[in-house]
Design a protein around this nucleic acid. Structure first.
Lengths: 403, 403
DNA sequence: TGGAATTATTTTAGAAAGTTAATTAATTAA
DNA sequence: TTAATTAATTAACTTTCTAAAATAATTCCA
C-alpha cells in the first residue's frame, strides 16, 4: 500500500483545488467578497480575481452589484463586492433507497430541493426493478421541471447496508436481501450520468454537513435509525469510511446485561430500531395486529405508563451508546434522523441527559445533540449531496480511498 | 469557523509538500528509486530529480551507488538507483511523562532509539521539577552521545490526560494532578527547541503508525492501559483528535451491568486498568500488602483459578469495548500497549475472540490485533515521532486544527 | 462640494514550480 | 560490440501563482 498521505501535488491540481476552495467558501458563507476569499483560502487577491472571473464566465457564480459583502457595513474605502453561487447553475440527482421506500430528488447547488418524489417498493422486488423505478421517477421529474441535462452534475445514491464507494457496489443490504448489487454501473448506464454510491447514514451525514446544521462543524456524527441503526461520520467536511468502508456500524454496538450473574449481549439495533420497539410494545400491549410507531407514541403520550417506561429505558441505553461514541470520536455535533423525528419528547430528553452524564468531562458538555432540520428529506438530500461533493465541489478527489 | 477543508494551495506550499512526500516515501519504503517515487507521488521524474538533488545537498538523503532499487532485479536497461534517508541526518527528542515514570530519548529520523533514559518521579512533585528533570536528562544524553544541536529537529512530549496540541498546554492530567500546565512553552524556553505536545496514547499511535506495525495502515487504533486507559486514533498517517482534542477517551466507555434489575454503569477504566485489576486481585486474595500486576499474573499462571476467572472476565468486557470500537471506527489494526505487554496469554486470547465475535460481519474478521512491537519504548518513540512528523516530515502542517 | 484618505479589485510584470520532450547514461541481450 | 531498453538529466516551455503598481469606489471632513 502507499505510504499514508505521502501524495504530492501535480501542478494540474493546483487550480482545481483553489476553484474548489472558492466554491466551498461561497456555499458556506452564502455571500463573500474577494478579499475575504483570499484570506480564507490563503492565496493572493490577484488569483481570486482571475479564478472568480472564470467562474462567472462559466455561469457558476454571480457578483451582486449592489450588495456589500457581509460583515463590512459602512466602512471607509471601496466596498467589497458580494459574490454568490448561482443555485440553478447546476442540479444534482439524489436517490435514497430505503427499506420499502424509495425517494428521489433534484437539488440545486445549494442543496435546495427543486423537485422530489417518494415511492413505495416491495422488498421482494428484483433490484433491477427498484433501480428502474428510481431512474424513471428521476426522468419524469427532469422533464416536468425542465431541467437541462447538461446542468446535471451526476447522481448520488444513498443505499442501505454496506457499500463500496470505489466500485459503486452495494455489497450487502440485509434488510433488502441484496448482495453485490452494482448500483453505480446500473444507474450510470441507464441515465448516462456519473454516479456515486454510499451508505445511507453516511450520505445523510454529508448532507447535514454541507446543507444542514453541520456546516460549521469539524467533526460530526449522523445517526439514522429505522429498520436498522447506522451512523455516518464526517470530519472536516469529508466522510470518514474506515478501512473497509465499514465505519459507523453503531447498530451492532453491544451492551452487556447481566442476567443471573452471567453476561448477556444485546445489540443497539435490538433496542432502539422500529422493529425492536414495535415488538416490545406489542408484548406490553398484548396486541397481535399491526401497530405503527406512531400508535405507540400516541398511547404513551396518552398515559400508558408501561410503554413510557419502556421507551425511557431504551432512550437510556441509546444515551449510553452515544456517550461512548462521544468519548471515542469527540464530535462537535450529533444529528439524529429517522424514527427520532417522531419521538415527540418521549426519547430525546433521556437520551440527551444520559449522553451528557456518561460522556467524559467537557466532551459531553460541549457536544450538540439535535434531530435533523432536513426532516424526512435528509436521505435524498444526502444522496444529492454525494454527487455535488464528488462531481461539483471537489472534482479533484476522484478516488480518495484506494489501497 | 472556516468552511471545512476549503483551504487552497498557496504556491509556496507546493514544493514543500512534494519534498514531504519524498521523505515520507523514503521512510516507508526504506529504499526507492526516482522513477517509483515519481509514480507514487504523482509528479514527473524531472521534478523528482530536482528535489532529490536538493535533499542530497542538504545531507538528508543518499544515493546508494551500487544497489538497484528493490523490485527491479536484473532488468534490461539502466538500473534504477536506490535512494535512502540518512538516519543520522537529524535527531528528534522525545519525552514521555507517565504517572510515576519519565522516559526520554533521542531517535534518529527512522525512529531508531539513539539514546534513552528512564527516571522515576513522585506524583507530588511540582510540574516544573518534573519537566526540569526531563530536560536535564535530555541534555546529558545529548552531550554523552555527541548529538549536534543543529541536527535536532525538536522535542515531542507525550503527556498524560487532556492536551491541547495547538497551545502545548496539558489541560488536565488527573493522575498527576496537573491543571493547565504549559508544557510546550516551558520546555521550549529551557531547551531552545520547537516543542510539540500530545496525549500519550495518541503519541504512541503515531509512533506505531510511522515506525511500528502501523506503517501500511489507513486507519489504526493504539490502546494504552496502565493507570488509565486511552486510545489514539491515526487515519492516513495523521492523528485524529476530534473536535476538542478529546477523541479516544475509551477508558470512560461505559458498560451496563444489571444489578437486581436496575442498571449499574461501570467505566472501562474501572475494569481493565492496573489499579482496578490489583484491587480486584487483592480482594480475591484477601491480601492487604503491596501487590504488583506481575504477582497477579504469576499466581494466575501458577493455577489460581479465581484470579484466572477474574482476568478472563475482564478480558471479555474489554473485548466487547474493542468490538464496539471496531464497529464505529473500522480500523485495520489495533495495537495494545502498557499492561497488555505483560499479560502472558491470560488476557489476549479472550480479548481477541470476544472482539471478533461481537464485531460486525467482516469488520471483525479483517482487523488485526497485536501488542506493540515497540515494547515499553513506545511512549518515548511516540513522543519523538510527534516532533519528527511536525518538524521534519510535514513541516507544512503547522497548525492543522484551529477554529 | 471636492479633495484626502481608505480600502477593494484589477492589471502588469515576473517568479516559482511544475511539465514535456529530447538527450544522455547505464545496463542486458545477442 | 552493437542494439535494445530503461533511468535519469537537461532544456525549453507552460501553468499558476505572487508582488507591486494602478485603478476604482467609497467615506471623511474641511
Amino acid at each position: 500500500m502507499r505510504p499514508t498521505a505521502a501524495v504530492g501535488i501535480h501542478s494540474s491540481e493546483i487550480k482545481q483545488r483553489n476553484v474548489s476552495a472558492i466554491l466551498l467558501n461561497l456555499l458556506h458563507y452564502g455571500a463573500i467578497s474577494r478579499v475575504l476569499l483570499a484570506q480564507e483560502i490563503g492565496v493572493s487577491t490577484a488569483t481570486i480575481t482571475n479564478l472568480v472571473a472564470e467562474l462567472v464566465d462559466q455561469g457558476l457564480i454571480a457578483e451582486d452589484s449592489r450588495a456589500r459583502a457581509n460583515g463590512t457595513p459602512n466602512q471607509v474605502g471601496r466596498p467589497q463586492r458580494s459574490l454568490t453561487l448561482i443555485p440553478d447553475a447546476r442540479y444534482s440527482a439524489g436517490i435514497h433507497i430505503d427499506v420499502g421506500k424509495l425517494h428521489v430528488t433534484f437539488t440545486d447547488v445549494c442543496g435546495e430541493v427543486v423537485a422530489c418524489k417518494s415511492l413505495d417498493h416491495q422488498v421482494e422486488m428484483d433490484w433491477r426493478a427498484v433501480l428502474d423505478q428510481a431512474c424513471e421517477a428521476l426522468g419524469a421529474l427532469q422533464t416536468t421541471h425542465g431541467l437541462a441535462s447538461e446542468r446535471i452534475v451526476g447522481v448520488g445514491v444513498a443505499a442501505s447496508g454496506l457499500v463500496d464507494p470505489t466500485t459503486g457496489i452495494n455489497v450487502v443490504a440485509p434488510n433488502l436481501d441484496w448482495h453485490n448489487v452494482p448500483v453505480g454501473d446500473y444507474i450510470s448506464a441507464r441515465l448516462g450520468l456519473p454516479v456515486t454510491v454510499e451508505n445511507n447514514a453516511r450520505a445523510m451525514a454529508l448532507g447535514e454537513a454541507m446543507f444542514g446544521s453541520g456546516r460549521d462543524i469539524r467533526a460530526m456524527a449522523f445517526i439514522y435509525a429505522r429498520i436498522g441503526v447506522g451512523a455516518g461520520l464526517v470530519v472536516n467536511g469529508q466522510i470518514y469510511r474506515g478501512a473497509d468502508a465499514g465505519a459507523g456500524e453503531i447498530g451492532h454496538s453491544h451492551l452487556i446485561f447481566d442476567r443471573d450473574g452471567s453476561p448477556q449481549m444485546r445489540s443497539l439495533e435490538s433496542i432502539i430500531s422500529r422493529p425492536a420497539l414495535l415488538e416490545s410494545a406489542q408484548s406490553i400491549l398484548r396486541q397481535k395486529g399491526p401497530l405503527t410507531l406512531e400508535d405507540v407514541i400516541d398511547r404513551a403520550l396518552a398515559g400508558d405508563e408501561a410503554l413510557r417506561a419502556m421507551l425511557d429505558e431504551r432512550a437510556f441505553y441509546f444515551g449510553i451508546v452515544l456517550a461512548n461514541l462521544v468519548n471515542l470520536f469527540n464530535p462537535e455535533l450529533i444529528v439524529l434522523g429517522g424514527l427520532f423525528l417522531s419521538e415527540r419528547g418521549l426519547l430525546l430528553p433521556t437520551i440527551e441527559k444520559t449522553m451528557r452524564q456518561y460522556a467524559f468531562a467537557t466532551l459531553g458538555k460541549r457536544v450538540r445533540l439535535e434531530t435533523t432540520g432536513l426532516g424526512n428529506q435528509v436521505g435524498m438530500i444526502g444522496a444529492a449531496a454525494l454527487a455535488l461533493d464528488r462531481f461539483f465541489y471537489r472534482p479533484q478527489n476522484q478516488l480518495l480511498m484506494k489501497g
